[in-house]
Amino acid sequence: FVFADVIGQIVELTPIEVVSANGKETHKLTVELRNEKDERLPMVLWGNFATDVSDAIQGRGENAIICVLRFGKIKVWKYERSVLNAYNVSDVELNPLTPEVEAFASLLSSVYIVMCTIAAIESDMGCYYLSCKVCSKKVLNVPNDNIDEQGDEDEMGFHYYCVKCKVKNPRLMPRYKLHLVVLDNPGNSKFLLFDAIAMQILNRPCNELTGSNFEEMQDPEDILLALKDLV
């Protein structure tokens, strides 16, 4: 690994995950940074870095977020670069008031307009996810400790858990997560639209389309009719 300082605007993030690393469960957050030339760099944060940054991003609304990672580890895998935090060494700040951040922000274009045609929806990656209705965070599917116990959740083999609220089987709310393939001249690209932006396009909340069926989509053919109208 090579250690470096990284600065970039956060342009995409995935819901926080709980994964197994070195035999222990830990939080993982993946975001994508861009520089003033619109070059992209994936950044992976682990542990408390992941939860702290995720909470901070959620609280900042739609404002542009510039991330500064100090003493980050540069990783190269199959010629693709990414950066991740080093435990107890790295430092992460969002929109710090420094001359370097002000200079970087002045180089960024605040608005991008993309004229394109939606060609396809990658439904095999799911069209929505289940979130906690109280805090809006994605809930986790946690295997039951004792599958021999009776109850509805044991029939599924798992229960839902909200990491932020620390609640088992919270009230659920489906939210959009659309993976779109779009065409422009001369090529194509992929967009990931989360709930707020997707709802502006569809003009309908996600729970209105799903009804009471809260099982996340796994079948590529099982695409909601309202989403087909986008293509």
Rank of each mutant, 00 (worst) to 15 (best):
D219P: 04
Q9W: 02
K28E: 00
G47V: 10
K164A: 06
S136Q: 15
C135D: 12
L193C: 14
C165R: 05
A119D: 11
D152V: 05
Q9F: 01
V167D: 13
K37R: 14
R204M: 11
N146V: 11
E39S: 04
L227N: 00
R204D: 13
V6R: 03
Y160T: 02
A21L: 09
N144K: 04
L107Q: 15
P143Y: 11
V83P: 02
Y87T: 01
G47K: 13
M173K: 07
F1D: 15
V76T: 11
D195T: 03
R175V: 00
N207V: 01
V181L: 04
N63I: 12
A56G: 08
N22D: 07
N203Q: 14
N63V: 13
E36K: 07
G72P: 05
N141H: 12
L192S: 10
N188Q: 15
V231N: 08
D219H: 08
T26P: 01
F3A: 08
L202A: 14
T51P: 13
K228Y: 01
I65A: 04
S106L: 07
V92T: 12
L45N: 14
E93R: 09
R60M: 14
E153K: 03
E155H: 03
K164W: 09
D184L: 08
L41R: 05
A64K: 10
V89F: 10
V76E: 14
F71M: 10
L108M: 09
G157K: 02
D52P: 03
K190D: 06
D145C: 11
M125W: 05
Q9E: 07
F158M: 03
T51I: 15
E221I: 08
A226M: 06
R175C: 01
M173W: 07
H179T: 09
L183Q: 08
N146I: 07
R60A: 15
N35T: 04
I147E: 13
N85I: 05
L69I: 02
P99Y: 06
D229P: 02
